[in-house]
Design a protein around this nucleic acid. Structure first.
Lengths: 158, 158
DNA sequence: CATCACCCTGTATCCGAGTACAGAGTCAAG
DNA sequence: CTTGACTCTGTACTCGGATACAGGGTGATG
């Protein structure tokens, strides 16, 4: 199967395959005598896997790590497990974060009824606060929606 | 509070604030007579919210939508709700996907014990297959994992 | 007033992740 | 063969999301 076919089946641009190859994500395939790349069928799956991982917010560098891990390329099993554990923690963090975000949005949706302009700003502020509960800006029951701004609140991280 | 302070508290580069302002994400703040930007305290929270959303895989354009929604800027409440619903569906999809990915990784970690090279490739292949179960590459029960390649050739799982 | 850290605008640069294009070669159906 | 669709390499460009830098202004402290 050559690049056009692989690309079509995986839903990417043929150029992208070359790009992945340069990055070392896709192994160099066999070549025909004329120099055409001749991919095994599983290449399609591999590319799909990469796209999935990207959808989930992993960079190509992250994907490289995942694949190295899958290859048993890590020096020791302990190392491999460490990488896996880190990924798991990362995933759990993301899942939790998404869950919180989901609640915020659901709350916004639930409050909004009937036609006409919404009164969502207050909820947005709450959403922000619920993501980082350390400070709810005082005086922002309403903000630019209908009203005014005022004073303090603070303290950092991220 | 001016830009340096906001930037520090929100954990971003001051330049980034200007960038967000250009994008319309951060509202134009008051200015001192000399032209210094004078931000209200809640700007810090807003910026943090933006970074959180980005961490979750939202683009700045998505963030703009979210904020427009929160502002009641959508023409009608129905529209706002539609946007919210779409976001919720998106979040649910992501959460589910992450959950699947989590299982795959957990399985990999669980199988790997003690020191020495791992036997993870097969699992990786399964992981790929579980994401898209349509085809498991034939002849890849094991691959190039531990130098001890299996009977069926070296075209390797990467 | 002098000082010095901080801020202003505008433009240029960087990085990741592709995508496009030019110019040349290959494959296989007719 | 010839033809037309496809592929090759190499280089350049795009786009989002910042960052850096130059050259000059501000502001509050002593």
């Amino acid at each position: 199967m050559w690049s056009g076919e692989v690309a079509k089946r995986a839903g990417v641009n043929p150029q992208t395959l070359r790009y992945y190859e340069r990055r070392g994500i896709l192994p160099e395939p066999e070549r025909t005598s004329g120099g055409f790349r001749d991919y095994p069928a599983w290449a399609v799956n591999l590319v799909r896997f990469v796209r999935h991982a990207q959808d989930l917010g992993y960079s190509l560098t992250d994907v490289e790590d995942l694949l190295r891990l899958a290859d048993g390329g890590a020096a020791s099993c302990a190392e491999a497990r460490a990488v896996t554990a880190a990924r798991l923690a990362d995933l759990d963090r993301r899942i939790a974060e998404l869950g919180r975000m989901r609640e915020c949005l659901a709350a916004m949706g639930a409050v909004c009824h009937g036609p006409g302009p919404g009164r969502l700003c207050r909820l947005m502020v709450e959403a922000v606060a619920s993501i980082d509960p350390t400070s709810i800006p005082p005086g922002h029951d309403t903000c630019s929606c209908a009203g005014e701004a005022s004073s303090s609140a603070e303290d950092g991280g991220r």
